[in-house]
């Protein structure tokens, strides 16, 4: 049997609005993935360390406060430092259109804005992780 996809979902920054992150975590679990939820107020350092220890293939960051331009670059930098460039990073939350391109340039694989469906997110993770697992095909 295939090993299930392992995902770390995290809520960086000071914001405590965790409705979205909890819904996503449940949906990913219902889709058969192994989900680790970090809880609230995680620093980029805590998130990257947890991702390393839990050996995840995917990190999902939920940010609603407008602090994404300060937080996401730091997460990407730390991943690079630790040689974890292969971890798929996705961001969800209130991210204005004009910031999406910037986040993608930093290496974020996808940004899910308000109204994105759970199905879209699940499918994106599945197809991206499968592609990474079989690069030659």
């Amino acid at each position: 049997m295939e090993r299930p996809i392992r995902v770390l979902v995290a809520k960086p920054g000071l914001d405590g609005h965790d409705r979205g992150v909890k819904v996503i975590a449940r949906a990913l679990r219902d889709a058969g993935m192994e989900v680790i939820y970090t809880g609230l107020r995680q620093t980029p350092e805590m998130i990257v360390n947890a991702a390393l220890q839990e050996d995840v293939q995917v990190i999902g960051l939920s940010i609603l406060s407008g602090a994404h331009n300060a937080i996401v670059p730091r997460v990407m930098e730390l991943l690079k430092e630790k040689g974890m460039d292969d971890v798929l990073v996705i961001v969800g939350g209130i991210i204005p259109d004009e910031d999406v391109a910037h986040l993608k340039k930093l290496g974020v694989a996808a940004v899910f804005q308000p109204g994105a469906s759970l199905e879209q997110i699940v499918n994106f993770i599945r197809s991206s992780v499968q592609q990474a697992a079989s690069p030659g095909l």
């Binding site: 920054g13 000071l14 914001d15 406060s65 407008g66 602090a67 331009n69 300060a70």
Partner: peptide
């Protein structure tokens, strides 16, 4: 330090 990126935003 915890305020970085959050000042005056919300």
């Amino acid at each position: 330090p915890a305020s970085v990126g959050e000042v005056g935003k919300c």
